[in-house]
Simulated scan of single mutants.
Amino acid sequence: MTVSVVQFGGSNCDRDAVRALDRVGVDAERVWHEDGLPADSEGIVLPGGFSYGDYLRAGAMAAHSPVMDEVRAAAEDGTPVLGVCNGAQIGSESRLTPGAFTTNRSARFQCEDVYLRVENAETPWTDAYDEGDVIELPIAHGEGRFEIDDAAYEQLVDDDRVLFRYCDADGNVTDAANPNGSKGNVAGILGERENVAVLMPHPERAALAELGGSTDGQGVLEGFA
């Protein structure tokens, strides 16, 4: 499988994503957004960073890049698409997934390790885990608070489209374990179909053992394999 990691002006996790995907046996290449998707793209990553400096709203300008029309079409055809951090914001702004990501409850940029509880283990992105597993991934965002209206949130829950919730080390989903104020402690969700997922924490930053931290993110990236 060849995964295209779409690079926008201001992306800064594209190289990390390529290296982490290589670690789990997935071929990946960086693709400049103005060049469009290669014909042989079998997967797509929208990486983290600060596309277009996060002007207007985080991800809003990148969502209007012509390449996103190709990404949406590919997603509709069943191509796996993963949006991480700024990529999650782009995915939301592009309507690949419902809801929105907005300013953290603290109104500050936050960079720290967090715990996530696996809510649905029957997707490509969570197949490496069991439901209820607790994994540790880093966050690095200023606009990571997931917001969605009550009815749409209940539909997400009913459809089992919540992938991860912020929790404590023992798996308790509490307000104290919610780093940014996300509704329902939501950290990652599916699109209308399970081939599309977005999450704010960074699995690619928790995939290389030589960095000395968690490697829990490998399971998410293995969704491409």
Score class of each variant (00 low, 15 high):
Gly36Pro: 00
Asp77Ile: 03
Asp27Leu: 13
His64Ala: 10
Glu222Val: 13
Ala60Ser: 14
Phe224Ile: 09
Gln7Pro: 02
Leu116Ala: 07
Asp40Cys: 09
Ala75Leu: 08
Leu208Phe: 08
Asp216Lys: 07
His64Pro: 00
Pro203Phe: 11
Arg30Lys: 15
Cys111Pro: 05
Leu199Cys: 14
Gly213Asn: 09
Gly213Cys: 12
Gly191Asn: 04
Asp40Glu: 12
Ala39Thr: 12
Gly99Met: 14
Cys167Arg: 00
Ala60Glu: 08
Asp159Pro: 07
Gly219Lys: 04
Lys183Cys: 02
Cys111Ala: 15
Gly213Ser: 13
Leu211Tyr: 15
His64Asp: 05
Asp159Gly: 03
Ala176Tyr: 05
Leu116Arg: 03
Glu93His: 10
Ala100Gly: 09
Gly217Met: 11
His141Ala: 03
Asn180His: 09
Gly219His: 02
Pro179Gln: 03
Leu190Asp: 04
Val26Trp: 02
Val162Ile: 15
Ala88Tyr: 07
Ala121Pro: 02
Asp113Cys: 02
Leu37His: 06
Glu42Gly: 15
His202Asn: 11
Val157Lys: 15
Asn195Gln: 12
Ala176Pro: 01
Ala207Met: 10
Glu136Phe: 01
Asp77Trp: 00
Ala60Phe: 03
Gly78Ala: 06
Ala176Leu: 08
Leu221Glu: 03
Leu156Cys: 08
Gly219Leu: 04
Ala197Leu: 11
Gly213Trp: 05
Met1His: 07
Arg72Glu: 09
Glu76Ile: 00
Asp160Val: 04
Gln110Asn: 13
Val26Glu: 07
Gly184Arg: 03
Gly9Tyr: 04
Val198Ala: 06
Val67Trp: 09
Val84Trp: 11
Leu21Glu: 02
Phe50Glu: 01
Gly43Ser: 07
Val5Gly: 05
Ser65Asp: 14
Glu42Asp: 13
Asp159Tyr: 08
Asp16Ile: 14
Arg57Phe: 03
Val196Ala: 07
Tyr166Pro: 12
Ser92Val: 02
Trp32Asp: 03
Ala73Phe: 05
Ser94Leu: 13
Pro98Asn: 03
Asn12Trp: 09
Pro138Gly: 09
Ala74Asp: 05
Glu131Met: 06
